[in-house]
Design a protein around this nucleic acid. Sequence first.
DNA 1: AAGTGTTTGCAAAACATTTGCAAATACATA
DNA 2: TATGTATTTGCAAATGTTTTGCAAACACTT
Lengths: 142, 142
Amino acid sequence: MDRKTRLRQSGLSCTRWRYNILKILKDSHLPLTSKDIYKMLPTPKPNLATVYRNLNRLVEKKLVRCVTLGERARYYELIQPDTHKHRIICKTCGQIEAFEPVGCDLKSFEKLIKEKFNFKVEEHSLEFFGTCPKCQSFHSQR
Amino acid sequence: MDRKTRLRQSGLSCTRWRYNILKILKDSHLPLTSKDIYKMLPTPKPNLATVYRNLNRLVEKKLVRCVTLGERARYYELIQPDTHKHRIICKTCGQIEAFEPVGCDLKSFEKLIKEKFNFKVEEHSLEFFGTCPKCQSFHSQR
DNA sequence: AAGTGTTTGCAAAACATTTGCAAATACATA
DNA sequence: TATGTATTTGCAAATGTTTTGCAAACACTT
Ligand SMILES: [Mn+2]
Ligand SMILES: [Mn+2]
Ligand SMILES: [Zn+2]
Ligand SMILES: [Zn+2]
């Protein structure tokens, strides 16, 4: 489905910036900050407030997800049905990798949570923190 | 071990505010924000900058961990060796629960990450987002 | 093409966190 | 216990991110 239809379907009008922000998120394999997105938007640039307003609108309509990854700024990523990612984050250089778990084996946790806390789990976020290959070798050579 | 000794051991002097902040974190079963901690400190209150400076110092010395839980502000929690928690967060009211996994079964993931990305995992963070019992009933009754 | 509700730019506010600097404190040593 | 030095503190100001009010521009229906 094209982006314009996707937006209309969610009850959003298809404006220049909304369309472009959604496109950028669709093409990115990693989550992006508002600044990342701002930089990738074509010139003439919109106001940063416009980027934020659109991101909030897209999150509200569940086309986009907002994640916090230990950094100051928030990250945004397209929600893709039937896929989900786990993340690997380098504590030294901040590099982010994502991988799609072959079969995510956290159902047993979710069951436990339902039974013990009567809490209805809708999604989960799993991040591994450590040191990336580059920073490992940099570290050992000094 | 008492807090004073714990601080000295890590190469930190034992100042009034440092001591109290560490005590508050030790007594809390949930992660706290700088504001939470500020409110819990005795009167006369320190400057907020002092709270931040101490939290950063405690994180740097690995007595405390900083976590982001989808909120704007950062949360801080005492690092307790040989224990680790997973979190359950209500997307409606923001309530946070924590549970200690009986045996955390993520070793297979860490192995995969080592092999596939040559990334050295040091810790992980697992959060479940959804709706707490209270918000479930509130939602269904309207 | 006109009308209406939504989005935009701009400037200012709100919020979390950090920083420079001079005065106060902690702690080692005498 | 008194003294010296490095560390911490309060205060005010700066920084970085996100939100908001308002008037003009735009998207979409009719
Ligand atoms: Mn998963
Ligand atoms: Mn775990
Ligand atoms: Zn790295
Ligand atoms: Zn709730």
